[in-house]
Design a protein around this nucleic acid. Structure first.
Lengths: 165, 165
DNA sequence: GCAAGGTATTTCGCCAGCGAATCTTTCGTC
DNA sequence: GACGAAAGATTCGCTGGCGAAATACCTTGC
């Protein structure tokens, strides 16, 4: 059975010089990410969160109980511009899910931490998000998941270490 | 060697209940797509194109010489809202890369086609984009690429056919 | 033949993100 | 110890995309 990318590529064969495998891989990843975002949007709406809010809470929650992070760290981890992160934190702080604390020893810095309410909502949202992602990744058995994760990792390493081979 | 996703997941183990494999796969795909978009932005700037413009020209070009498509078709294929597609086409038409033709027999409809200039620029841009994507996907040998494409396809089929399995 | 409903596109108001510029604080150097 | 460079966060102006409403057109049923 064909997916939309197969149809795209077939309709297209011979009309221009390009690598079909590469095209298929890249386009499928783009579509999967887009699908995922849309599906997650729907699921997260149930707890009143938007995707970008959840994503931010998620990486903040990863710091552990009472864990903190600076806006720049979060911006780098989430691959968002510093300005974008300021905007996200504004929204989250206004909603009471996050707290900004100006550092004492270096007053340029700001630490961000989850409020207890933020942590609670994040935990609720994790379940919902998990369902969507499990639906997608769950088509694959555990072995295939391992293989997929490894292949993706090799590509990501290349992108994160431009110097390397 | 670890990538940023490994580090994220490790830092995080035991702190919340979730499937590490799924998390790793999803997060890596998101990062790869983001990396790709950023790298492509840079490359395409050389021909004065933005990513969303190239993407639209690309699917239009796939229709073949003199091929046409309606805005709604393009919107569906590119997973963009109809309103968003109008905006894209406005930009492209103003730049002279695309032409809108109101259909004669059904005057609600609009057909879109590449101008010759649009086709030329698209072809030039394909090379540049190819380089970036090849760099990423090229870490994998042909066999691994086939495996990856197949795994992605299985997931995409699931997302495009919600009823199924 | 005409009203009601459906379809294709566009307009409108809004939002998150980006890059550049700004402001504050700290660090290095003389 | 003062002054310029650097670092961290924020503000500002702009852009692409979204959802909802509006517009224009076709089609069906009476």
């Amino acid at each position: 059975m064909d997916d939309s990318v197969d149809r795209h590529i077939a309709r297209w064969r011979g009309k221009a010089p390009f690598d079909e495998r590469v095209e298929a891989i890249v386009t499928r990843m783009q579509f999967l990410v887009k699908h995922l975002a849309q599906a997650k949007d729907g699921a997260l709406a149930a707890v009143g969160l938007q995707d970008f809010e959840y994503e931010t809470l998620h990486w903040l929650g990863a710091r552990g109980e009472g864990g903190r992070a600076t806006p720049s760290e979060l911006a780098a981890e989430l691959k968002v511009s510093p300005a974008g992160m300021t905007g996200r934190l504004d929204t989250l702080e206004k909603a009471g899910l996050v707290r900004r604390i100006r550092s004492v020893e270096d007053r340029r810095r700001v630490d961000v931490e989850l409020t207890s309410e933020g942590r609670a909502i994040w935990l609720k949202a994790m379940d919902l998000r998990g369902e969507v992602e499990d639906t997608m990744v769950g088509v694959l058995g555990p072995d295939d998941q391992e293989i997929l994760a490894a292949l993706l990792k090799r590509m990501l390493l290349r992108m994160e270490n431009p110097g390397r081979g």
